[in-house]
């Protein structure tokens, strides 16, 4: 699942090293508009339903945090 997520993220923002960055939002590496793009891809790829209330910056600070969000919706 992590590889698939990394592929989605890298396609949205090729210049960011998602494997090592842990403060994507705090460091300003991800824009709010990137989040929208990423969310729609995640929902299609993983078949999970994320809501507008999930679009909080803290849910997008690292691959692991985002992975936890996806897993909480697929459990």
């Amino acid at each position: 699942m992590k590889e698939k997520l990394l592929a989605i993220l890298s396609e949205a923002c090729p210049e960011v090293d998602f494997e090592t960055e842990t403060a994507l939002i705090d460091d300003g590496l991800l824009e709010s508009l990137d989040i929208v793009m990423i969310v729609t891809e995640i929902m299609q790829e993983f078949g999970v339903e994320l809501t507008v209330d999930d679009l909080l910056p803290e849910n997008f600070n690292s691959v692991d945090v985002l992975l936890a969000l996806i897993e909480s919706r697929t459990a």
């Binding site: 709010s32 508009l33 929902m43 809501t51």
Partner: peptide
Amino acid sequence: LLQGVVINAL
């Protein structure tokens, strides 16, 4: 969101 959108602000 579930259908996929083009959006100008989060």
